[in-house]
Simulated scan of single mutants.
Amino acid sequence: MAPSFANKEAILIIVCNNEGKSGIPVTAEMLSRGASALDALEAGVRVVEDDPEVRTVGTGGWPNLLGDVELDASVMCGSTLRTGAIGALKGYTHPVSIARQLLERLPHEFLVGDGAARFAHEIGAETGELLRPHAKTAWQRWFDSEIKPEHQAAWPDAPLIEYCHNAVDPEIGKDTTVFLCMDQHRHIASATSTSGWGWKYPGRLGDSPVIGAGSYADSRYGACACTGAGEMTIRTGTARAVVLYMKMGMSVERAVDEAVNDMRALKGGLISRVTIHAIDNRGNHRTVAVNGLPDNHYWLWLPSMKAPEARPAEIIQISDEEPQNKPFAMAVYTKEP
């Protein structure tokens, strides 16, 4: 039966980004069986974290400048406004579940680095080798070709600033995974997971674990989550802004427009791509790719659908300038041996 958006009946909806393809069927199946929003999102994101075809999330994600894979994740319950966020985590395969346990078991909202790893160990979270052969080979090729001999000799204690400025994500157009949904009780939730910007400065956090920047959920109004250049959404508080604009009475369409307008004020720093995914509390949604690419898309599921469907993202250009950080020729490093 198709969902009713005009009354108080149960509304089910899932929106996730392009990288969520493998996980959204799991989330949809669970929601259709009456699972809670948080349970369904966590399960779907875990599938993406294990997906060998996704190289920007979980196991197999791209490493930082030192060759280490650092993972970030978050969850938010829109009915309690409780959150769990994990940043710069090494050696654990399902950061979204660690973030969920943080929400459930700690009075805190955010753990990073050694503290996040300590908590993950304490709860018995799954461990594993995150750096897979394809990423290790790509990193080694980059190191051999781009790092000055004197810095190679001093590695890993060499200066990294210049290399950070000359390196961007090896797969342009690939992203964090973000999931938004509303369950049968009209509870709204969000979840994110990422390995972050490939070849990033060690310890860098993007927007994915930053509640209010990369994701935000409030069951009274709606939810929003972002992919792309997290530096932009951190500076504009994009996810919280979209929900706040809806709280002010704007439609989800107008709320996203206002958040895009906020980005037009950004000067300097990294100005690149951001995709904004948003749902409201009536089952409406909108996905906009700021400075997006023609193939940017997202996934949508409603109970009226036989299976989740890929939809093209609406593309809005806010800058004609080149991104501040230009990609180097990664094809030479990422091609199969």
Rank of each mutant, 00 (worst) to 15 (best):
M1K: 01
P3H: 12
F5W: 08
V15S: 03
N17C: 12
I24E: 00
P25D: 03
P25M: 01
T27Y: 08
E29Y: 09
S32L: 08
A35D: 07
A37M: 05
D39A: 14
A40F: 12
A43I: 08
G44R: 07
V48K: 06
D50A: 14
P52A: 06
V57G: 11
G61M: 05
P63S: 14
N64F: 13
L65S: 08
V69H: 14
E70C: 06
E70T: 12
L71F: 13
D72E: 14
A73H: 07
M76G: 03
I86M: 09
G87S: 12
G87A: 15
K90N: 08
G91E: 05
V96W: 04
S97T: 05
A99P: 07
A99Y: 11
R100V: 00
L102H: 08
L102F: 09
P107C: 03
F110T: 07
D114K: 14
R118C: 04
A120S: 13
E129T: 14
L131Q: 11
R132I: 06
P133D: 11
P133Y: 15
K136G: 10
R141K: 13
S145N: 09
K148R: 14
Q152E: 10
A154K: 15
C164E: 09
H165R: 11
N166L: 04
A167F: 13
P170H: 15
E171Y: 15
K174I: 03
D175I: 02
V178F: 07
C181A: 12
H187S: 07
I188P: 05
S190F: 10
A191I: 05
A191S: 13
S195K: 10
G198N: 10
G198Y: 15
G198D: 12
G206C: 05
S208H: 10
P209N: 09
V210E: 07
S215M: 08
Y216M: 01
A217Q: 03
C224S: 06
C224H: 01
C224W: 02
C224T: 08
T227Q: 12
E231Y: 02
T233M: 01
I234Q: 02
I234R: 03
A239I: 01
Y245G: 04
R254E: 15
V260G: 11
V260M: 08
D262M: 04
R264H: 09
R264K: 15
A265E: 11
L266I: 14
I271T: 04
S272D: 13
T275E: 04
T275A: 07
T275R: 01
I276A: 01
H277E: 01
I279V: 09
D280R: 08
D280C: 02
H285R: 03
R286M: 00
V288S: 01
A289F: 06
V290R: 01
N291H: 04
L293P: 05
P294N: 06
N296W: 14
H297W: 04
Y298I: 02
L302P: 08
A310D: 07
P312R: 02
I315K: 09
Q317D: 09
E321G: 04
E322A: 10
A329M: 04
A329V: 04
A329W: 14
P337H: 12
